[in-house]
């Protein structure tokens, strides 16, 4: 019995003992980019530089309460060196909370200024766009919604349309962008009418995609990476960028962001990783892998999915979108969480 206890104690303590061995140079990155896409990029960096990368991946299920809140909580004793996000709103929140430090990466010089923070607290990287995904078996091309207001049209039953909770993730950012573009009352009214029509509000963009692909919904709002996943699997779906007509609103383009954490324990390695993540090489790699559909550099060709010309983005600044997130969140909680 005593021998058994001893063996168990030693087995459990072994990893602690191992952690005392000398360590190679390290960089810690917190990322909300999906693990399947982020891991190859980080592994390539590690191989090239010999720097050990220790990532922490976010998950969609924690409703954006995960890593961003962890960074804020750790502000006084930072553990992370780099924040690599799949979108920009959380990054701006981190900037406002004083979690980030400025870094003007030379590798980002060819990224358009609209996608770089004027104070260099973050740098935009290739991103995604909001799209309408339609089931081609349930809707004919004439019935396809072409813009967001079409989702209020009577010819599409509310129960056939799906959106993710506009309180979390990119759907929340999209809602904030509409607040910035239309004004608070109009945007709130729009969402209230969607809710009143009985539009299906589901757990996330991937669920919208699955329900449209399986024919449980005729159409839904989601992100390009989700939509292209359905196309790759051969689902009977078509991807449409909303509001692309002449004088139309345009769709929301959501760039990814990379930032240096203030007080990072490994600042030198952190800058090297940032240089790598914002480089044209990684942008090309992420576009090719299917994580990004909207490259920021004009020199990089857009991917095959979604087909057609690059989307026209909404004429609102990222800063203006971020300014609206709090109001949108407060309103939409009243509308949808009831």
């Amino acid at each position: 019995m005593r021998r058994l206890v001893l063996i168990i104690v030693l087995a459990l303590a072994l990893p602690l003992a191992c952690s005392c061995a000398p360590k190679p140079p390290t960089v810690v990155v917190y990322t909300s980019v999906d693990q399947v896409y982020a891991e190859p990029v980080l592994n390539a960096f590690a191989e090239r530089t010999g720097i050990r990368v220790q990532p922490v991946f976010d998950v969609e299920a924690t409703k954006t309460t995960g890593l961003a809140n962890r960074l804020i909580a750790e502000k006084n004793h930072p553990r992370a060196d780099v924040w690599w996000s799949g979108e920009f709103a959380q990054t701006m929140r981190l900037e406002a909370e004083g979690v980030l430090a400025p870094y003007d990466s030379p590798a980002a010089a060819d990224i358009p200024a609209a996608y770089r923070d004027p104070g260099f607290f973050w740098t935009g990287v290739a991103g995604r766009a909001r799209v309408l995904l339609v089931n081609t078996k349930l809707l004919t091309p004439e019935q396809y919604p072409r813009n967001l207001r079409d989702l209020l049209d009577e010819h599409l039953p509310g129960g056939q349309i799906g959106i993710a909770y506009p309180l979390f993730g990119t759907t929340a950012t999209h809602a904030a962008a509409l607040y910035a573009a239309w004004g608070r009352d109009a945007a709130r009214g729009y969402f209230a009418r969607l809710q009143a029509r009985g539009v299906r509000v589901v757990d996330g963009n991937s669920v919208v995609r699955d329900m449209v692909a399986q024919g449980q919904l005729a159409c839904g709002l989601t992100d390009t990476d989700d939509a292209c996943g359905a196309v790759e699997k051969g689902a009977p779906v078509e991807i449409l960028f909303p509001d692309q007509e002449e004088g139309g609103l345009g769709t929301l383009v959501i760039p990814g962001t990379v930032a240096l954490v203030a007080g990072a324990p490994h600042p030198q390695q952190a800058r090297m990783l940032i240089d790598y993540l914002v480089s044209a090489e990684v942008e090309r790699q992420l576009v090719a892998s299917g994580w990004c559909q909207v490259p920021l550099r004009s020199t990089i060709a857009p991917p095959a999915c979604p087909p057609g010309p690059a989307p026209r983005g909404m004429a609102v600044s990222l800063e203006a979108v971020w300014q609206q997130t709090e109001a949108a969140s407060a309103d939409l909680r009243e509308v949808f969480v009831r």
């Binding site: 399947v36 922490v56 991946f57 998950v59 996330g204």
Partner: peptide, 16 residues
């Protein structure tokens, strides 16, 4: 950092 549980990985992959 650098250590994740199987459940974290499952949820990360659930996006698909």
């Amino acid at each position: 950092p650098g250590s994740a549980t199987l459940t974290l990985r499952i949820y990360n992959y659930l996006h698909y």
